[in-house]
Amino acid sequence: MKTSFVLGALAVAGLAAGAAYAGTLDDVKARGTLNCGVSTGLVGFAAPNASGEWEGFDVGMCRAVAAAVLGDANAVEFVPTTGKTRFTALASGEVDMLARNTTWTFSRDVDLKFEFTGVNYYDGQGFMVPSDLGVSSAKELDGATVCIQTGTTTELNLADFFRSNNMSYEPVPIETNAEAQQQYLAGACDVYTTDASGLAATRATFENPDAHVVLPEIISKEPLGPLVRHGDNNWGDIVRWTLNALITAEELGVTSANMAEMASGTNNPEINRLMGTEGTLGEMLGLDATWAQRVLAVGGNYGEMFEANIGESTPIGLARGLNAQWKNGGLLYSPPFR
């Protein structure tokens, strides 16, 4: 049950005995919910809808892990985090995992002691300009005023890009996406820059999306992925292989529609191992045999999640691009389930 206010006060008074440190998996199971850090609102990736339900691509990742570990895709506490608060939230144990458009970089992995468990979206920083500005390349942006949504690696990439091209610019850093849009739409800045996926999501919400173009240049590599704390390898494995299960399922053609059929046994041993009808992969993770079935039951495989939240049929309208399976010329390549 929820620790009462009084107990909280006791802990403050320093009287609560610190329990011996258990693994994150045990914590999550004991608690019965997964605490998942998401962004404060980026349509398509993580945003609460009109009835307060969180939905989006990153949210789907959280639900998949909850389904694998707890057997209930709704046993997730979504913790909205800003660019500033996300790392402390994870490091201090407030969240068990972070699924919040976080770029995998050397210093975050090594210096901040986090473990990126894979890439669920290959992104890159792009520029959006109003069509009537008459700009067709980012190289023509010398002297422009650029709205930046702060809180990711955006500021650094932007500084590098303009410096290496010997151009000047005026940065306008804005905390939230909604306010950055307001500035951009009012013409207080000429350009809006953030991850290309974010640009597409933002453009989709405009009254007149056709009046804005995303420039062809992608100025950075932004591999976005879920991350966990360093040191708890078992938990890291669970998050990593939940993501891999989603990717592999698409590669093997396992969808939410044909899952029941696949789970009853197929000729493909890898599908069987994924579905838990062959081998003991689930037990090795510390879960049961059918964990991956539950993961896929939440929102289908990677491709289905993509299409449902950010794909071309949604207002966001992102093409698969780099995020297609390796067989289709993309970068998604899950290690084998064996």
Binding site: F5, G8, G18, Y21, A22, T88, E94
Partner: peptide, 19 residues
């Protein structure tokens, strides 16, 4: 409260943000 205080509580005490 948001980014530092959690470090000053006993490990695993799990005091939520509102508190």
């Amino acid at each position: 409260a948001n980014v530092v205080l959690a470090y000053f509580f006993p490990p695993d005490s799990n005091i939520d943000l509102i508190l």
